[in-house]
Amino acid sequence: MKVRVYRSDARQRDAKLIAYDVPYTKGMRVLTALEFIQEHLDPTLSFRWNCGAGQCGSCAAEVNGKPVLTCKTEIREGMQDLSVFPLKVFPPVKDLVVDFAPAQKKLKDLRAHFTPAREKKPGEFYRLQEWQVQAAQEMRKCIDCFICYDVCHVLRDAPHLNFVGPRNLVKAAAQEFHPLNVVNRAPLVEQGGLSACNVTRCCTESCPQGIQITQNAIIPFKERVISSKDPFEKLLKKVLK
């Protein structure tokens, strides 16, 4: 089997696609093929992985044009040609390794940490019902693999819009939907370019954790932004206060 892997350094000098001959074994993952290349054909090949079990989100790459977790993606029997590229929209580091730091930095502006009304007393426990926590729990399944960034049209085609990206919205939603949260992140995500997203659901379809990103994170935020601008709702809020 031929496995073509994208090779480059951080400055993308001599970026090239190199083809390696990898013996196929049944049940083989894309990550296994990369390991084989690194250990037997070219020791300088770089790629990331850690858990090898689909749980840490370290190993994402574009395989035959589709971003996947390489540790989980089986190479089907009879597949002759495989191409592996790094995730797009991130600054390259080397070969399949990219730098997530810019995306992580943008997360800081979204106050993606727990913001309750008051500090809890030591030893105190919250009383929360299952139905109250489900929305937030869905968002917390995110393993930060950044596959959703690779397929996001806004990030790919309009980098100047400075969009915070689907994963960061999921992180913001994980806090916003905590039943005890008191911070309104709508203005923050709006500043983060939320309006540029035209809900094509590409991120949702690519999520290996099956998080309904569009339906359950992006659209609720869009609704919050709209309602926070609605003059009637503004008035209502004032009156209620």
Binding site: F125, A136, Q137
Partner: peptide, 23 residues
């Protein structure tokens, strides 16, 4: 241990709940 769990909750961790809303 109970204190540690309580702290983790105050950091925002959301545990699965019992029918009466406890951890």
């Amino acid at each position: 241990a109970p204190q540690a769990i309580s702290e983790l909750e105050s950091y925002g961790a959301i545990f699965d709940r019992t029918p009466d809303g406890k951890i």
